[in-house]
Amino acid sequence: MTINVVEFFQSLQSGFFDFFFNMISFLGEQYVYILILGIVYYAYNKKLGEYLAFTLFFTGLFNNTLKLLVNAQRPFQKYPDRVNNLRPETSTGHSFPSGHVQNFTAFLFAEGFYVKKVRFFVVASVLAALMAISRMYLGVHFLEDVLVSIILGILTAYAFSKFFFKLDDKKLHILYIITITIFTPFVFLLGEEDLFKAYGLMIGLLGAMMFEKKYVKFTMDVSLIKKVIRVVSGLVVMLSIQLGLGVLFDMLASEGSMLLFALDAIRYGLVAFIGLGVYPILFKKFNF
C-alpha cells in the first residue's frame, strides 16, 4: 500500500488546506451532481442531461460493486496510528476504488467527450487530479485507489460517448434494462447502502425517461427566466424527496439493515423518477 504518499499529503495539513481539500471533495458529492444535472437537463440540453445521468449512475453501480468485491480497508482504518480521517461523513464504505474520484472523473470526462474541446479536457484533468489528491489528503484513500479510479472513470465516459447518442429511445431503454439486470445479483448478494442507492437511481432513471418521452416531451423553447424557475423548482422537488423520505425511512428501519437499504433504493429511485420524469409535467401545465 502506498501509505507514504498519504502521509506526505497529510504532512501538509493546515487550516487552509483542510478547507480547500474539503471543498474539492464536496464537489464530488450528491448535491453538486443534483445541481449540475438539474441545470443541464431542465435548461440546456435534455439528451445531454440523460447521458450524464446514465454515466454517473452506471459508474456508481460499477464502483460500489468493485468496492464490495475487493473489500479493501481505508488508510485511516489500516493505519489508525499514522493517518487521520478528516472527512468521516464520506468514508463509510471500502477503499478501492475511490467512488468520489471515479464518479467525478467519469462525469467530467463524459461532458468532455461531448463538447470535444481541448481546454475542457485540461480543466477536467486538473479537477480530477485535485479530487484524487484531496481524498488522499483527507486520509480516506490510497494512491492506487485514486489512480485506478481515474482510469476507470475516463474509460467509462469514453465508452458511453461512442454510442449513447447514436441509440434511439427504444435501444437506450434496453441498455438501461441490461445494466439493471447485470447489477441486480450484486446488489442483493453484496447488500450495501451506497450500492442500493445507485441501483435505485438507475431504475428511477429508466422509469423517468420512459415516462417523459411518452407523456411529457418538454422542450427548451422558453425564456431564460423560465429556465431558472425550472431549475430552482426542480432542485427543491428533488431535495425535498431525498431529505424528507430520508428522515421518514430512518424512523421506519434500523441503521445498517437490509430494510433501510431497500428503502434507500426506493428513495433515490423516486428522486430520479419524479425529478426527471414527472416534475417536467409542470413545465407545460404552468407554461415555464
Results as ranks from 00 to 15, higher is better:
E29G: 07
G38A: 15
L61T: 04
L48G: 03
A72H: 09
T65L: 11
V237K: 05
L270H: 06
I281M: 14
L66W: 05
G153Y: 00
G246V: 11
I225R: 13
L175T: 08
F9S: 06
V6E: 01
S11P: 06
F249K: 03
D221Q: 11
P97M: 09
Q73T: 11
F113E: 00
F218G: 08
T156N: 08
T105S: 02
G139E: 01
A129D: 00
Y33N: 07
N71E: 11
V40T: 10
V228R: 06
V148S: 13
V247W: 12
H94C: 07
E29S: 10
L147D: 04
V187K: 00
K284D: 10
G275A: 10
I203A: 03
L86I: 10
A265G: 08
V101C: 07
L52G: 03
R230D: 09
E192N: 09
F76C: 07
S223H: 12
N103T: 08
G246Y: 09
H141Q: 09
L61W: 02
M136D: 01
S134T: 05
R82S: 12
L239K: 10
V6D: 01
I281T: 06
F54H: 02
L270T: 06
I36H: 10
A157H: 04
F164W: 14
I241M: 11
L243P: 02
G275T: 05
I24V: 15
V6M: 05
K226W: 12
M210W: 12
N71Q: 12
L270A: 13
F186P: 01
Y215W: 13
L56H: 02
G49F: 05
F164M: 08
